[in-house]
């Protein structure tokens, strides 16, 4: 598995998209500091970008990589290798290279501007941690879709739709439900609704750490009380982990049965 991981990883590292992705974050980081040297504000801007972009890039990269390396995968399948080894190896290759682009790309400007010496270092590292987590989740989901649909166009369409649902439509639905039932206490509903979408969960986890959490008012206080405890934090991280583990298990089981 390590060999396949290595192969996928080096393959991606050589591809120009990884570099573009890396350079994008690098430039973004430097530009943010160039325009505004306040680390906390830079983190808020980054939050907006990371929770939208890492899932999108993860999805698109995952699905593209599967379809373009299909022939090579078929070649591997003819070798005496376990199927789970092949697919999990590929998955880890993509995920590690993408996360590395994110962490290193943003890490360089932030270290260059002295984030390690400021109090924001924890906020920054949790932002990177969550960005990496989102990459893990959305590549796994994209691989699931790719394994399900042999048709490239269909797979691509579904992947984009998945991202759209998670990033945009889900929030719209929450909003509509809340407005419909605004006569009822909605704090627990809001908590539950947010927990089940990894993008929303990540957004809230970061927001609660920042100053602007004061704007969240009473609902924010309910959230703070939940996520402020170690129990809440454990629940949040385990839900994010479930979002990685379940799709990964499905990749293994589908790959095992699939007729290529």
């Amino acid at each position: 598995m390590i060999k396949i991981l290595k192969y996928s990883f080096y393959d991606l590292m050589r591809s120009r998209w990884s570099y573009i992705y890396f350079l994008f974050y690098l430039i973004l980081g430097f530009v943010l500091f160039f325009l505004n040297s306040d680390v906390n504000k830079a983190i808020i801007t980054l939050l907006n970008i990371i929770i939208v972009l890492t899932p999108l890039i993860g999805t698109v990269f995952g699905i593209m990589y599967y379809y373009t390396s299909r022939e090579f995968t078929e070649l591997l399948l003819s070798q005496p290798l376990k199927r789970s080894t092949i697919f999990v190896g590929q998955y880890l290759g993509i995920v590690i290279s993408l996360s590395l682009s994110l962490v290193v790309g943003l890490g360089i400007p932030f270290i260059a501007y002295g984030v390690t010496r400021s109090a924001a270092v924890w906020n920054f590292s949790s932002l990177l941690f969550i960005g990496a987590f989102l990459t893990f989740i959305f590549v796994a989901l994209a691989y699931n879709i790719a394994l399900t649909f042999n048709d490239k166009i269909k797979g691509f369409g579904f992947a984009i739709l998945l991202w759209l649902v998670m990033a945009v439509i889900y929030d719209g639905l929450i909003m509509i439900v809340m407005m419909q039932y605004s006569d009822y206490p909605l704090d627990n509903f809001a908590l539950a609704a947010v927990i089940f979408n990894p993008i929303d969960l990540s957004r809230i986890l970061i927001l609660l750490k920042l100053d602007i959490s004061a704007l969240l008012g009473y609902t924010g206080a309910v959230f703070q009380r939940f996520f402020g405890t170690s129990m809440g934090m454990i629940i949040a991280v385990s839900i994010l982990s479930v979002w990685v583990i379940l799709p990964l298990l499905r990749i293994i089981s589908v790959a095992r049965k699939k007729d290529f």
Partner: peptide
């Protein structure tokens, strides 16, 4: 308000 800073 929990939807603050969401793309939606």
């Amino acid at each position: 308000i929990i939807l603050m800073r969401s793309l939606f």
